Simulated scan of single mutants.
Amino acid sequence: MTTPEQNQTSLMCFEQARTEHTNNMKKYNGICADITRCEKERQAAIEAGKEAETNWRTRFRNLRGNLTDELRAEHSQRIASRELAEEFTGLLTELELDKQAAMLGCCASAKEYTESHRDAFNEFADMNWESALRHVSPKLLWAIRLRLQREKVNPRQDNEQSDMEVVAALVGDALTRAAAALPEKVLREAPLLDNIGLWRPALTGLDIELMRSPAKRTRLALSIREQRGEKQEVKQK
């Protein structure tokens, strides 16, 4: 079910927030994949360097220090493997900072995503509620009016609740029970609601604790800036 009064502003905000958060999570996951790959490459370079070091030293001693062209080439290779491992170590440090910064971005977009989902869902629900009230069945209204009259005809001993309150509770309970008995799939018959989603967005892979703590996010952002500043100073020396 949908209504012509449905305001598209909240829906547009929700869709934009969902797209932004999806892109942020893709960026974060991409950095995580880069870190995993670099760690493997670094470990491979370390192992290759260890093997080259052992082989070179053995041959160096066997040749009594006679540096043949082949031995010189092996020497260059072991140095290259060592330097490559060091380069990966430096790169991993930078990627870790990128990963933390990306998670901060994900936390910000996740907050916007969940809030815009709440607004879009609530607006859709409220619009349909108001529309249903405007088009309520005359037969149902007649029956409710008759029930009110029944309360007047049969006065109760206690006066804790008015006739209106008694009937309102009866109607609300009856309608709520009937609505609750409907399967969830009937809600998805509304394309717009299927687009919004019946539940809060699943924030898979997000640091929920970080998202919920502004203080932690502030400290992390400050730490990232400080570490990047220190690295920049080292490069300039």
Rank of each mutant, 00 (worst) to 15 (best):
E96G: 07
L84G: 07
H75A: 08
D69C: 01
A125R: 12
M127R: 09
E86V: 05
Q100N: 10
A80D: 09
E87S: 14
S76A: 14
A101M: 05
K99L: 13
S109A: 06
L104C: 00
S76W: 05
E86M: 08
S116Y: 03
Y113D: 00
K99D: 10
H75K: 09
L95V: 04
T93M: 05
L104N: 00
E112S: 13
A108E: 12
F88Q: 02
A80Y: 03
Q77R: 15
T114D: 05
E115N: 11
F121I: 03
A108R: 00
T93Q: 15
H117P: 04
A80K: 01
G105F: 01
R72C: 11
S116W: 01
H75D: 14
K111S: 03
E123I: 15
E94S: 15
S131N: 14
N128M: 12
E83I: 05
F124Q: 15
A85N: 14
F121M: 05
T114F: 02
H117T: 04
A125N: 15
S76V: 07
F88K: 02
T93R: 13
R82I: 08
S109D: 00
L84N: 11
S131G: 09
L97S: 03
R118I: 08
E130L: 11
A85W: 10
I79H: 10
F88I: 02
L92F: 06
G90V: 06
